[in-house]
Computed example of a mutant assay.
Amino acid sequence: MLSATERAADAAIDLALSLLGEGETGERVYKTDRDFATATDFAIEDAVRELLARETPDIGFLGEERGHTGDREQYWCLDPIDGTTNFSRGLPNYGVSLALIDGDMPVFGSIALPAHGERYVTRNGGALLNLQPIRVADTSDLRDAIVSFGDFASGPASGVKNARRLAMLSSLATSVGRVRMLGSAATDLAWLAAGRLDAVLIDANRAWDVAAGIALARAAGALVTHIDGGPYTLSGRDLLATAPGVSGAALAVLGSTQE
C-alpha cells in the first residue's frame, strides 16, 4: 500500500504530465543569456505546488522557477521540465523530476520521461521503471563504460566553468568507452538507474535538476559522490554517480583535472 506522500507524488506527476501533453511551450522567459523557462514550466510548477500544498501541507516546496516556500528541512523539490531546451525543440530527452528532501538528502524520487513512455520511482527501498524493478549495470571496465556528461554552463562566469568542464571531458574521452551529452540530468540519472549508462558526471548541483535522480540511482545500486570523491550532499558543488564497478576508475581519471 502506498503512503500518503507516495500517493501525493503520483498525483503530482500525473498532473504535470497532463499539462506537458498539451504540447504548447508558450512564451520564453530568459534567466541568463542562453537559459530560459517556458510558459509550460511555470504552469506545471504552479499546479503541482498547489496540489502538494493541499495534500501534504506540512511539507515545504522548492521549485526551479518560483523558489522555496514552507518547511526547509523536509520539502518537495520539483523541476517542472528538466531539459526545457530539448522540450522546446521537440527533442525527446526531457521530463518531470520530483523529489522529497529531508535535511540535505533526497529520500524519494520520481521521474517521468513522457517522450520515452517511461516513469521511474523509488519504492520499498528499490527503484522501479514502469513498476518493474531496475538495477545499475554490472560494468567493471571503464573502457566499456558509457558516461553521460552534464551540459555546459551559460550566464556569468560561464567561460571559467566551461574550461573546467572541457578539461574533465578531455580526460574522459581518452579513458571511457563513449561519452554522451543528453541535455537532461533527469534522463541521465534515470538511465543510470536502469543500467543504460554506467556513470553520470555533472559539474553543477542544483537540487531540482538532480535530487530525484540521485534518489533513484542510489535505490538502484549506484554510488554517488562529489567529483573529488567526497560524500555527496545537496550543498556541494558537483556530482559523480556511477555503477559500483567503475566508480574507483572514474574517480581516478577525474582526479587529475581537480589539481
Rank of each mutant, 00 (worst) to 15 (best):
E64H: 11
I59A: 01
D79L: 02
G103T: 12
E55W: 06
T32M: 05
C77Y: 08
A47M: 08
H68Q: 14
L52A: 06
F36P: 05
A99W: 04
T69I: 15
D46S: 12
V48N: 03
R72E: 07
G83L: 07
L113N: 00
E65L: 11
E73N: 03
D35K: 00
A47C: 01
P80F: 08
I111N: 00
S110C: 14
Q74G: 05
P114C: 06
A39N: 01
T40M: 08
D33M: 07
H68T: 11
R34L: 12
L62F: 11
R66I: 15
N93F: 14
D35R: 10
E27L: 09
S88N: 15
L78T: 10
S97Q: 06
E27Q: 13
M105V: 08
R49A: 07
S110Q: 15
I101L: 07
N86R: 10
F87Q: 00
K31A: 15
L100S: 01
S97V: 13
E55T: 15
D102M: 05
D82T: 01
E45K: 08
I44V: 14
A53L: 07
A115L: 04
S88E: 13
D33F: 09
H116L: 13
V121C: 02
A47I: 13
D41H: 10
V29E: 11
R66M: 13
W76G: 03
S88H: 14
R72D: 01
V96Q: 07
R66H: 14
Y94T: 02
R54L: 15
Y120D: 01
A99T: 11
F36R: 10
A39F: 05
I111G: 02
D46P: 07
Q74E: 09
D46T: 15
R34C: 08
L100M: 05
G60H: 01
R49I: 04
V29P: 00
G83H: 05
S110E: 12
R28W: 10
R72Q: 03
F42D: 14
G67T: 09
A39Q: 08
L98C: 06
L113E: 04
R49E: 13
